[in-house]
Amino acid sequence: MMNTIRLAAVAAVTASFATGALATEWNASVWGKRRAFTEHVEKIAELVSEKTNGEFTINVSYGGLSKPKENLDGISIGAFEMAQFCAGYHRDKNRAITVLELPFLGVSNLEQEVAVSNAVYAHPAVQDEMKQWNARLLMTSPMPQYNLVGKGEPRDTVEKMNGMRVRATGGIGEAFRAVGAVPTSVPSSEAFQAMDSGVVDTVAFAPHAHLSFGTINEATWWTSNLNPGTVNCPIVVNIDAYDSLSDAEREALESSVDESIQHYLDNYGALLKRWDEVLAEKNVEKVVISDAELAKFREAAAPISDQWIKEMTDQGLPAQELYDLVQKTLSENGS
């Protein structure tokens, strides 16, 4: 894997010298296909090019540069300049931001997800950890709460989730483990195959991913209100590449973040409005979990946050401070 990435880096540098071009060209490594999850990356590429009259361009690659779980490695060695990754793919490499993947944090909308991500990304401990990978946090990829799709009898009680094989990462996976389920963290692009082949019984995704990766096409039911949490997937840039930008290029990049996030939110909002229509079209049953069962699930998952705080504190991170920062930010933003 690392040899492939290094070859890509060498090829990119060689091409740059061969053309002798003065324009700045970046490559951004994402995966899957263009979808709601990548709209802010597409938008920032568009805005940066507009603001610099085409002198600074960002080429968005869907899987052609790296595998999803290897994007942070690629950033660390400069194989590409920008990348998206999800914290749950390699929790040991980005321990601090996994606070945002803890279950049942109380985030109720995408705007709150942006607010808590921005607050955590700005914390010195988080930035220092990212520097170890030569990575600078640029913006988040806000996603709504995850829910399950599955086939056969709906898993609508904690008892029925016992033994359930579920595609779930990070804190969501730990929450399901707490009720006896068996989580697996296959990349999102492999979730359909895992469900189709019977490797997993259910898949936990945000709505856009159920559409993009086809798991909704395998489903007979969907949980509308389980809402155990979500994953956190930052967009990062290589620090050396960022530092090499001119002042004008850096301004074009930084000033485009908020507009790109707003574009993402607007696009995702339209998708959520269509979601019920999609379920009806595909004849997928909308399952509502009872308040009593939700309470059981939350109770079972409650120790996970305390365990995370202890574990991360033992590793030298200001875990309690990060957790409190999330709660404070939610309180300030309407939670």
Rank of each mutant, 00 (worst) to 15 (best):
D314Y: 06
N232M: 06
T157V: 04
P303F: 01
N333P: 08
R250A: 12
M139F: 14
I216H: 10
F192K: 14
N71F: 00
V186Q: 03
S29A: 15
R165L: 04
P207S: 08
D240E: 11
F104E: 01
G32A: 09
A45I: 05
S16D: 13
T169I: 13
P144I: 10
S290I: 08
A135G: 08
V237G: 04
N333T: 14
G180M: 04
W308P: 00
F192T: 02
H40F: 07
M130D: 02
L294N: 04
T230Y: 07
G78P: 01
E174N: 00
M161H: 05
S16P: 14
V120C: 06
A209F: 10
K160Q: 10
N109S: 07
H90C: 07
H90Y: 11
V48M: 15
A204N: 01
G334I: 07
S255G: 13
V114E: 05
R136P: 05
T140E: 14
E277I: 12
T157R: 00
V186T: 12
P228S: 05
L100P: 06
L279C: 08
L226P: 01
I97D: 08
M82I: 14
K93H: 08
K286C: 09
D247F: 11
L325G: 03
D247P: 10
T220Q: 15
R34W: 03
L330Q: 03
V99H: 09
E153V: 14
I172W: 00
P154F: 09
D128P: 12
A302M: 07
G180A: 03
E81C: 10
N238R: 01
T230A: 11
R34A: 13
V186G: 01
G316I: 12
D247S: 09
F37W: 13
I235H: 11
L72G: 03
M130G: 03
G198F: 02
I77N: 02
S66E: 06
N225Q: 09
A87C: 10
A204R: 00
A8M: 12
D324R: 05
K93N: 04
K69T: 13
V326T: 07
A178S: 08
E259I: 13
D201I: 02
V199N: 04
R177A: 06
M143Q: 14
S305Q: 14
V182F: 04
T223K: 05
H208G: 05
K286W: 07
D156Y: 07
A8I: 11
W133G: 09
K286A: 13
G316P: 15
E113K: 15
S244K: 14
Q307F: 06
L138P: 04
P183M: 06
R95K: 08
S66V: 00
P303E: 01
L137I: 15
V186I: 12
S66F: 03
T223R: 09
Y323H: 07
G171S: 12
S260V: 13
L317G: 06
